[in-house]
Nucleic acid binder design. Structure first.
Lengths: 233, 233
DNA sequence: CAGTGGTCTAGACCACTGG
DNA sequence: CAGTGGTCTAGACCACTGG
């Protein structure tokens, strides 16, 4: 199986971006430059640039050139955002309390969430993420120990579980369920809300190439958080 | 401004699908057939099929042909689904109560939601969508009268506002906000829930080329509905 | 003006599928 | 085998942008 030439050109450009040689806004080689550089026809060079443009990695403008797109907007609703980055992006103070970090024996439900056998040992972390001292997200996470064996030895006050897991097991897929729920007393207490207050619950299962990495239950006080999204047709 | 040939071929095929001449699973003309039919080069015929395939309207298989894709999956999280279709797709009974349909004078908030001036006359509809007799969605919708002048004369027991508006003002954009809330007594009563029950609230602003068409506030009982989504990386 | 991307042609060779 | 889609070439003319 040989890699097509247009794909090689795409890889070359993506590589330049990932290695930091090309930054958002930078102009990438034109069709004519790629044509000479790779010894291909213009249609082939064009296809590489066009597909990267379709993938929103590049933007093209007639008469001007082709440029690296601004910070990957991910565009889809319910992006996988790092809660710490999100809070800091608002110019607010972020901090985090570690409530639990341990290995546990998976219940039937937990095993199913991670696609493992009941009774397997899995890792579990519970964290409370705060914005300007006010609890914003209660994160109860199960982790597949095979795919993140060093999970229990991380300092999650410095790096969120989400960020850590993205490093050790790059995400390929994610499923979400969004619900409005009442939370149990212990979670209400941690979130500093009355237990009658509605909360937004996001259940997220994330997968890498090697399988289900993690299953997170995220609880947000209904009066402090909303999910936004934008669609284009 | 002349329409490119590949775009004409795309329109032709999409038209055949929309008019029901081509059904999901049906084979569409091959590159060679389109080439003769439209008198274009193969690269041009190919581009039409390839782009429709990228848009998930067609699926292609080497050696086999090109086929109409199964029921548009829309793929994005929080797709704009027709609640009636969604309920019927589950094999359940759908029906709908009309609670209000009238012209109203826009409050400051309502005017902002529709990007109109305060005090403008706008249309408002309130409907209750039920699954097997049980209320599932309370829909409170504001409509821009300029973009849907006949809105008040529709029978929304036959066609949802969403479906009607999509016809008269094709959507180009949509914004969503998802929240967990408590609802006021009147809405709780309509939804047949206790007012202490958390609800999922989806606020959706939809736009066509000519501007903001509609602003809908959708309330779902937290224990009867959840939003799901899937992302690929 | 020279350079960019947008559209298009008329060919070519290939891998794949079904009969 | 004939037909399909996948890749690719070496040209062409065009609209658009900046200088």
């Amino acid at each position: 199986m040989t890699i097509p030439r247009f794909a090689r050109i795409k890889e070359f450009i993506v590589g330049q971006i990932e290695q930091g040689f090309l930054l958002p806004g930078d102009q990438v080689p034109s069709e004519n430059q790629l044509l000479e550089q790779f010894g291909v026809s213009r249609m082939t060079a064009r296809r590489a640039l066009q597909e990267l443009s379709d993938e929103q990695i590049l933007v093209r403008a007639q008469g001007l050139g082709t440029f690296v797109a601004d910070a990957r907007p991910m565009s889809s609703l319910l992006e996988i955002k790092n809660i710490a980055d999100e809070i800091r992006a608002r110019g607010h103070n972020y901090h985090c309390d570690l409530i639990l970090l341990d290995a546990v024996t998976a219940s039937a439900q937990q095993a199913m969430d991670l696609s493992l056998a009941e009774g397997s040992t899995v890792f579990r972390s519970v964290l409370l993420h705060c914005e300007n001292g006010l609890p914003l997200q209660y994160e109860d996470r199960l982790v597949n120990p095979v795919l993140a064996p060093d999970y229990l030895h991380q300092d999650f006050l410095l790096q969120t579980p989400n960020a850590y897991l993205s490093e050790v097991a790059p995400l390929t897929e994610a499923d979400h369920i969004v619900e409005a729920v009442c939370v149990e007393e212990s979670i209400a207490l941690a979130l500093e809300i009355d237990s009658s207050q509605p909360c937004l619950k996001v259940s997220r299962r994330t997968c890498s190439k090697r399988g289900v990495v993690s299953f997170a239950s995220l609880f947000y006080p209904g009066n402090r958080y909303r999910l936004g999204g934008h669609l284009n047709f």
